[in-house]
Design a protein around this nucleic acid. Structure first.
Lengths: 222, 222
DNA sequence: CGGAAAAGTTTCCTATAGTAAACATATGGC
DNA sequence: GCCATATGTTTACTATAGGAAACTTTTCCG
């Protein structure tokens, strides 16, 4: 097989040799692949929408019989069929592939909180999106913030909260105003760590809104 | 047929428009796009890993000829075949379906302290970059990690450290393997919060290295 | 209980995905 | 150059997915 691991000179990986590959395959530690019962999932979705096979047939263009077999795991649909299912059931693939099994870890999820009714702005100056639920027993609070403010004047007062904050600019660029320091310009990818009980405020200096990731420490509980 | 080698210089990225960006932020995950050239994508991934069809055949259990036809869009693979591909190529489906989007270019870097120049972190699979100095009295440790690992086999053992960790994918996409849960695929912009004393490991599932932002809690305090 | 219509399953056939093997085309010594 | 080997494609065949219609089960009216 393979052979020819290209000269290691430019190997991207940690020296993958033939031997490694062989072993990897032999020992086959790949069974990580999900058992993934596609059919069951399709049925779930269909029933939860109170659709009959005929309905889904109409929506997807797949035959009633085909759908039945898919749901009963009698056949493995072709990829084109899967695509029809996706568009027909009006879902996206991650949904189709990840059954209810929710991880312990919490995937970033929408949980919008709007701050500031925007006096000088039609839109809120901040738009927070929590990136983790079940924050109760956690020690950090991660959230993504869309910064609409375009002028320091948009702020009636400093933002201030106990603890520390780590911040990284994900999109656009911002100006970080703070109580005790000179305004600091942060571009895409830049980050900063500061005491958040020091008054602070963010302003987008890019054309569009800026988006920043913030992680704050929790001080209340424990 | 001389089908023009897919200029492995990787044709990337359909310009990220504002709309795209907006969607990405809203959902945290890119919407599923229909007209996708699965085969082309498979080929990209294969070549970027310097794998031959035979290699992939070994890894996936699919015939060389089948792979060839898939890559050349001559057939639409069954879903089971797709699963084998995913497993064998060590990627996740959204990744397989999404055209390589990589941009966000070089991150402007400020306050960097390097860690893992071979001393404190001899691992070749990770490259950590601290995002804050003077960590002494801080309660969180933010750092950016370049994930070079492309296979779970690159890890001799789990990574494990007391406390909690928040993680966000900044570039590329990864597979998060963990001790107690199923591997979890995270794409650009996705994030997760987990107990870091649970063994974990990251693998890049994108063409190039992945870059993630991590924020860990400090437990050794002071 | 009927009986009829609707929903789901199975049968049978056709279209096509998957495979092995032959073929074609690079690639690398010597 | 020449041969040997490796890699990718095409061919010929088998296995199986997809669809139409027959069949079975359920639903729901009277």
């Amino acid at each position: 097989m393979a052979a020819s691991a290209p000269d290691d000179s430019e190997a991207l990986m940690s020296t993958p040799t033939d031997k490694d590959a062989a072993v990897r395959i032999a020992s086959g530690r790949k069974p990580f692949v999900e058992p993934l019962k596609l059919g069951e999932r399709v049925k779930q979705i269909r029933l939860s929408n109170h659709w009959t096979l005929e309905d889904v047939s109409q929506r997807t263009g797949l035959a009633r019989s085909t759908l039945s077999k898919i749901e009963n795991e009698q056949i493995s649909p072709t990829f084109t069929a899967v695509q029809k299912l996706i568009s027909g059931l009006n879902i996206d693939l991650p949904q189709l592939l990840s059954p209810p099994k929710r991880q312990s870890g919490t995937l970033g999820r929408r949980d919008l909180t709007r701050v500031g009714d925007g006096k000088s702005h039609p839109t809120p100056t901040y738009e927070h999106e929590l990136l983790s639920w079940q924050l109760a027993q956690k020690r950090m609070i991660p959230f993504k913030t869309r910064v609409r403010a375009r002028s320091f004047d948009d702020f009636p007062d400093w933002v201030r909260h106990d603890g520390e904050e780590f911040l990284m600019v994900l999109e656009g660029s911002i100006q970080l105003y703070s109580e005790f320091y000179e305004p600091l310009a942060l571009g895409n990818g830049d980050s900063i760590y500061f005491d958040s009980d020091m008054g602070h405020a963010l302003v987008s200096t890019s054309e569009d809104d800026a988006v920043v990731l913030s992680v704050c420490t929790r001080t209340d509980t424990d």
